[in-house]
């Protein structure tokens, strides 16, 4: 756990208490989760009570208090994708990788999340894996898409 890096992030935001969410987002982006020591550091350096840091970390969807898998699978459940059959695609993904939304598997291969619109509704239903968008996924196509990841 690289606390120096956390300090740098805090310094980038000039140590202002109001930037606590921005600081936590930067930590999340960098480490892909919020380790406990990092949060304690944020609490000490910004003077934001731990109770609030904890509430922020659990209130906003971007944060995770557990490490994430190597591959982040995002199934879009935006309205456009929903009316084009996204729930069934989600069912299939859940079955194939054995995870529910919000979960990560034990060997940290996949994390599954649902999202509300990736802005490419023309291609719905859409799955995004590690930032790459796969469009027009049918129940059948899901397996091909997922099998490409190790």
């Amino acid at each position: 756990m690289d606390l120096d890096r956390v300090d740098e992030i805090i310094d980038n935001h000039r140590g202002e208490a109001s930037s606590v969410i921005q600081v936590m987002l930067d930590i999340q982006t960098e480490m892909s989760w919020l380790p406990r020591e990092a949060l304690t550091r944020v609490n000490e350096r910004l003077g934001v009570p731990l109770s609030r840091v904890r509430h922020i970390a659990t209130f906003y969807k971007a944060f995770s208090l557990v490490p994430k898998g190597r591959h982040q699978v995002h199934v879009c459940l935006g309205t456009a994708c929903h009316v084009r059959g996204a729930p069934r695609v989600l069912d299939t993904v859940e079955e194939l990788i054995g995870l529910k939304p919000g979960e990560t598997d034990l060997d940290l291969k996949f994390s599954l999340e649902t999202v509300n619109c990736l802005g490419c509704c023309a291609l719905g239903p859409v799955i995004e894996i590690d930032g790459k968008t796969h469009g027009n996924v049918s129940t059948g196509k899901t397996e091909d898409v997922l099998s490409g990841y190790e």
Binding site: P49, L50, S51, R52, R54, H55, T58, F59
Partner: peptide, 21 residues
Amino acid sequence: KDAIGFIDRGIRKEIAFLPEI
């Protein structure tokens, strides 16, 4: 003292102590 706080949001919102405090 902030020894107790909320976690999560919406229907999953709960109160919880901060054990260390």
